[in-house]
Computed example of a mutant assay.
Amino acid sequence: MDEFFEFSFWEMIIRATIAFAVLLVLARLMGKKQISQLTFFHYVTGITIGSIAADIAGESETPFMNGLIAMIWWALLTLLMNYIALKSKKARVLLDDTPSILIHEGRLNEQEMKKVRMTLNDLNMMLREQSVFSVSDVNYAILETNGKLSVLKKAGQEAATKTDVKASAKDPKYIPTEIISDGKLIQKNLTELNLTEEWVMKQLKKKGIGQIDQVYYAEVYGDGSLFVDEKDD
C-alpha cells in the first residue's frame, strides 16, 4: 500500500519538461500539416511519437535516455521518408497511396470500393457530409489519401453563381487531372484521358514552353484546356 503513494516529484517534473520541449521541437521540424491533411502514415507516426513522449514523462521505469533517443530517431525516420517521398513519386505512392475514384462519370466503381473496403452506407454518409444526398447527382467522387471525399457534381447540380445563371448545363469533357508533376509526364493519367504526349507538347508550345522538364505542375481542366505552373528559375 505504501508503494501506491510513492512518487518522485522532481524526477517526473524534469522528465515531463524535457519530453515536452523535445516534442515541441520535433513537431516544428516535421511540418505544419493540419489534422485534416494528414495521411494515414503521418497520423500513425504522430500518435507513435506522442505515445513515446507520454511514456518518457509518466513512466519512471522507462529509462529516460532510451525513450528520448527512440522519440528523436522516430521523428528523424519520418523526416527522411518525407524527403524521399518529395523526390520520388514511387515513394509517395508507397507511403501515402493514391486517390481512389469511387464514382466515375456517374457510375459506382465497385472494384475500387472493394479495394478500399468501403460500403455504400459509408459512401452515402461521406456524400451527405458534402451536402450531396443522391449518388445520381455525382459525376465524380474521389477518396483522397487523407480519407476525405472530393465530389464533382453533375452539370446542373452545382450551386448556382451569378455567372452560371445564363450558362448551359454541360458535363465536363474531362475530370480535372494532373498530367505533369515536377517536370515528369504522368503517362498513366494521359492514357486515362485518351491524350498523347504530342498533344501536351502542342499545348505547352502555345504557352511558350519548349520542354516538359520546365514545368513544375500541369493539369487538364474539365473543358480540355491546360493549366501550367513553370518551375522557378
Rank of each mutant, 00 (worst) to 15 (best):
E59D: 01
S60W: 02
E61C: 01
P63Q: 00
P63I: 00
F64V: 06
F64H: 08
M65N: 00
M65G: 00
M65T: 00
M65S: 00
M65R: 00
L68A: 01
L68I: 01
I69E: 07
A70F: 02
W73N: 12
W74G: 05
W74V: 11
A75P: 00
A75S: 08
A75V: 05
L77V: 11
T78D: 10
L79W: 09
L80T: 15
M81Y: 02
N82I: 06
N82D: 13
I84C: 06
A85Y: 08
L86G: 09
S88G: 07
S88N: 15
K89F: 01
K89T: 06
R92V: 05
V93G: 02
L94H: 04
L95R: 02
L95W: 03
D96Q: 03
D96L: 02
D96C: 07
D96I: 03
P99G: 11
S100P: 05
L102I: 05
H104C: 11
R107T: 09
N109A: 04
Q111G: 11
Q111N: 12
E112M: 10
M113S: 09
K115P: 04
V116A: 01
R117H: 09
M118R: 04
M118G: 03
D122K: 04
L123D: 12
M125K: 13
M126G: 04
L127F: 05
R128N: 15
Q130R: 15
S134F: 05
S134Q: 03
S134E: 09
V135H: 08
D137E: 15
Y140W: 15
I142V: 15
I142G: 06
E144K: 10
E144G: 08
T145K: 12
N146Q: 10
G147Q: 11
G147R: 08
L149T: 10
V151P: 10
